[in-house]
Design a protein around this nucleic acid. Structure first.
Length: 169
DNA sequence: CTCTCGATTATCT
DNA sequence: GATAATCGAGAGC
């Protein structure tokens, strides 16, 4: 978006019956976007510091969304590096939900924005990740056991702050 | 109206 | 490895 972008390499799923999802508590001012039609962005502020980007999914009214956790930057690298001075390597530019939004310039102002209009531009995958790995979700305090974290196998851009695992030991 | 917590990250020991 | 930073939403009074 806005000249910067990349390939999504890691996501996490959240739906209404998921205790870890914001939509679990029901329709509220903050989550109403998730209860709306799919194809919209649900952005919210986490820990008062980071904006997290979600894509609202079908069916409408199910309050399901996909959290975009990691991105392989392919466009606007220069801009992204400027926005993320803390990143030591290019791999750190978007290797996390908070980092990703900062890199792309996504803010709360983009909440409820269409994904096929304005600053956003959602494109079909180029070659499609050969393998998708499912693993426990990260950073949540409920329903941690659900394997709803999907990441592209082999991509060095996936986030992996805490996960003890996924690869082994 | 006030208080607590959170789908995180950067920085220090 | 542990901890602080920081603000909006939800729940309680």
């Amino acid at each position: 978006m806005n000249g910067v972008g990349g390939t999504i390499v890691e996501t996490e799923a959240y739906e209404r019956e998921d205790p870890a999802s914001h939509s679990f508590v029901g329709l509220t001012e903050r989550t109403k976007v998730m209860f709306g039609p799919p194809g919209y962005a649900y952005v919210y502020l986490s820990y008062g510091i980071h904006s997290l980007l979600n894509f609202v999914c079908e069916p409408e009214g199910d309050a399901a969304a996909v959290l975009i956790r990691a991105l392989e930057p392919t466009a606007g690298l220069e801009t992204i590096r400027e926005r993320r001075p803390a990143a030591r390597t290019d791999l750190d530019l978007c290797s996390g939900p908070g980092k990703l939004t900062e890199a792309l310039g996504v803010t709360l102002a983009d909440n409820a924005a269409r994904l096929d209009r304005d600053p956003f531009q959602l494109l079909p995958p180029e070659g499609d990740p050969p393998t998708v790995v499912t693993s426990p979700r990260v950073g949540i305090t409920k329903a941690v056991e659900r394997l709803w974290r999907f990441s592209a196998a082999g991509s060095p851009y996936v986030s992996r702050p805490r996960p003890v695992s996924a690869s082994g030991h």
